[in-house]
Design a binder for these strands. Sequence first.
DNA 1: TTACTATACCTCATACTTCAAGGTATGTAC
DNA 2: GTACATACCTTGAAGTATGAGGTATAGTAA
Lengths: 112, 112
Amino acid sequence: MGKTNPPFMTGVPELLVLRLLSQREMYGYELVKSVRVVTSDAISLGEGVIYPVLHGLEKAGALTAKRKPVNGRTRVYYAVTPQGRERLERLSGEWDRVSAGVDSALGEAGHV
Amino acid sequence: MGKTNPPFMTGVPELLVLRLLSQREMYGYELVKSVRVVTSDAISLGEGVIYPVLHGLEKAGALTAKRKPVNGRTRVYYAVTPQGRERLERLSGEWDRVSAGVDSALGEAGHV
DNA sequence: TTACTATACCTCATACTTCAAGGTATGTAC
DNA sequence: GTACATACCTTGAAGTATGAGGTATAGTAA
């Protein structure tokens, strides 16, 4: 039953979502726009990415969801649990390791 | 029909391969080990990744292949073409943009 | 009224990449 | 002669992201 490891470069959407939610509660539609803003348009994640990530993290116990009616529409606000913070720490560390690896391979020393 | 864009975080194996080959000619098996070395074990790409990337880049005109018999075994050395250098520049720029985006989202912008 | 836009939730087929494990074959060490 | 490292390669399965679709409410402009 060879369980395959996840691809080495994934989990970035999850990382971004956890990071943003660790600063304040947000709802899905808001996250879609926020990702673009905080990354200066470098990364744009569609709703097809955000919502599944949100649901997955909630199921994993990393987030809690809270429905709030606002102006007749319903928003689902997500908050990070302690478990989610651990996950954020782990993913953040992995990202640092991998991105440092790439940068060192690129030899960012004298390059521009 | 609707051609989908490649996932936003891909092309890293390609980037690493092009970068290493831009420094000197290498063969596939050598690249597999080199990637581990230059990334301090942060990234490990198997032969199932390296060889297809090599073939794809050759077909795209970014690399040229040269067979050399060494100690009875055959090695296929790859070299970067001018076209490959352009591709390296482009991928390198994309990586910088995306990784800067993630870092700024993580709030490590001022981190060296 | 109608139409269009923005908000806000969601799902799904397709495309793509990566992983892991396999296969072939030669040379070297025990 | 058996085991390991070198050196090439392919492939099935797993998993993620894309792009486009669907539902529904509220506001605005014609």
